[in-house]
Computed example of a mutant assay.
Amino acid sequence: MQPDAHDAESPSADGTDVPEPLVARMEAEVEQLRHSVSSHAGIDQAVGVLLTMGRMTPDEALDTLREVSSRTGTPVDRLAELLVDYPRSGSLPAAVRRELERQVVRPRADGEHRDGDGQGRDRP
Score class of each variant (00 low, 15 high):
M1Y: 01
Q2N: 12
Q2Y: 01
D4F: 00
H6F: 06
H6G: 13
H6N: 13
H6C: 13
E9C: 15
P11M: 09
A13Y: 05
G15Y: 05
D17W: 12
D17N: 12
V18F: 01
V18C: 08
P19L: 11
P21G: 08
A24R: 03
A24V: 15
E27T: 13
E29Y: 02
E29V: 10
Q32V: 14
L33Q: 11
R34D: 15
R34K: 13
H35W: 07
S36N: 12
S36I: 12
S36D: 13
S38Q: 11
H40Y: 04
A41H: 06
D44E: 13
V47Q: 01
V47E: 02
G48S: 06
V49G: 02
V49Y: 00
L50T: 05
L51G: 05
M53S: 05
M53Q: 07
G54W: 00
R55F: 10
M56G: 01
P58C: 06
E60M: 10
A61K: 00
L62H: 04
T64A: 10
S69E: 03
S69F: 02
S69L: 05
S70T: 14
S70R: 07
R71D: 13
G73W: 05
P75Q: 06
V76P: 00
V76A: 09
D77W: 03
L79W: 01
L79A: 04
D85V: 07
D85M: 08
D85Q: 12
D85I: 05
Y86N: 08
P87T: 10
R88C: 11
S89T: 15
L92V: 04
A94P: 03
A94V: 10
A94R: 09
A95Y: 01
A95F: 02
R97A: 15
E99D: 12
L100S: 08
Q103H: 05
V104N: 00
V105Y: 01
V105K: 01
P107L: 09
A109T: 02
H113R: 10
H113V: 14
H113L: 14
D115W: 04
G116M: 05
G116S: 14
G116K: 03
Q119A: 15
Q119M: 11
Q119H: 08
R121L: 07
R121Q: 09
R121F: 00
R121N: 03
D122K: 12
R123M: 12
P124F: 03
P124Y: 02
P124S: 10
